[in-house]
């Protein structure tokens, strides 16, 4: 029974856009795509926070850089996703490498603050790029092309996003069980002991940070396509806070924590926005209730057998 949950969920996710189209609710296909993209970005952050034990407060920077990577290349005529998306990932990974090299020398609240500082620096840097839209953001002329697949239709883009998300979640599972994942678990619990055992702790944490940054860059590349533009707000600190909130809400260190957090948070926003002008009041109260009564997030409430 347990083994069937994941394939069934995946099948339902594949069927969703066709169902929406058949019932005349195509609008929600884009909404679902957006949720999955945020889920991917939050999953990437969960790798750093939940698996690597590093509370990073600047993840939106890598998310936003991925978006700008695609948008800037598009402005220069590069429309192929086969080139632009890997380039966006590389840009985000490179930024994460630089930020990580400096930040990982600090601990605890200082790590939180220094990652925040670097993210804000990148935010202001992007803001100053007047040739690339400045504070208005940089629109995309079209979606990227991913021959032979069709990204032009909302359903096509939804399915590609779903495939990327599913692949990332599968990779996360492999990674958690790998030697690298075991080493991260050791570092999370007792960093000094890992060093005494001879592990290159700094390098392992840096690798974790860079992988998380790279995946966030991929999410950003998808976001630019979904949104039709790269906006500086994607890099602002409240966006980093939002991603962190998704991770904590869903479940820190749980493989589906980031996705659950994105689905619940964005879903709640959408539902409340339908009935009131003051949706954020409800969202805030809900978050406060979760952190008060479910300290391990929503995933922590799932039956024991379903946890990693």
């Amino acid at each position: 029974m347990k083994k069937l949950v994941e394939p069934l969920l995946l099948a339902a996710a594949v069927a969703l856009p066709f169902l929406l189209a058949a019932t005349g609710n195509e609008f929600y296909t884009g909404m679902a795509t957006r949720v999955m993209i945020f889920g991917l970005a939050a999953t990437a952050l969960n790798l750093i926070v939940g698996y690597g034990g590093m509370v990073a407060f600047g993840h939106a920077a890598f998310f936003g850089l991925g978006a700008y990577g695609v948008a800037i290349l598009m402005q220069h005529g590069v429309t192929s996703a086969w080139i632009a998306w890997p380039a966006a990932v590389a840009l985000a990974a490179l930024a994460a490498l630089g930020v990580g090299l400096v930040s990982l020398r600090t601990r605890g609240v200082y790590f939180i603050m220094i990652t925040l500082a670097f993210a804000q620096m990148l935010y202001y840097l992007v803001l100053s790029l007047k040739n690339y839209g400045g504070d208005d953001g940089l629109p995309l002329a079209n979606r990227s092309t991913l021959a032979p697949l069709d990204l032009g239709s909302d359903t096509g883009f939804y399915l590609v996003t779903l495939a990327v998300l599913a692949a990332a979640l599968f990779a996360m599972k492999r990674l958690a069980a790998s030697r690298f994942g075991s080493a991260l678990a050791g570092i999370r619990q007792n960093e000094t002991r890992m060093e005494a055992l001879g592990y290159p702790v700094f390098g392992l944490k840096l690798a974790c940070f860079v992988i998380g940054g790279a995946v966030a860059g991929l999410a950003g590349a998808l976001m630019a396509n979904q949104h039709g533009m790269a906006s500086p707000n994607l890099l602002y600190w409240t966006q980093s806070g939002m991603l962190l909130v998704m991770v904590i809400l869903g479940g820190v260190g749980h493989r589906y924590g980031g996705l659950i957090g994105a689905v619940v948070l964005l879903g709640l926003e959408e539902v409340l926005a339908g009935v009131t002008d003051h949706a954020n009041l409800g969202v805030g109260l809900f978050l406060l209730a979760v952190v008060s009564f479910a300290p391990r997030g929503i995933a922590g409430l799932l039956p024991k057998g379903s946890r990693e």
């Binding site: 809400l249 009041l281 805030g284 109260l285 978050l287």
Partner: peptide
Amino acid sequence: VLATFALILI
């Protein structure tokens, strides 16, 4: 972070 972020929204 989660609790006080919620307070900002509220």
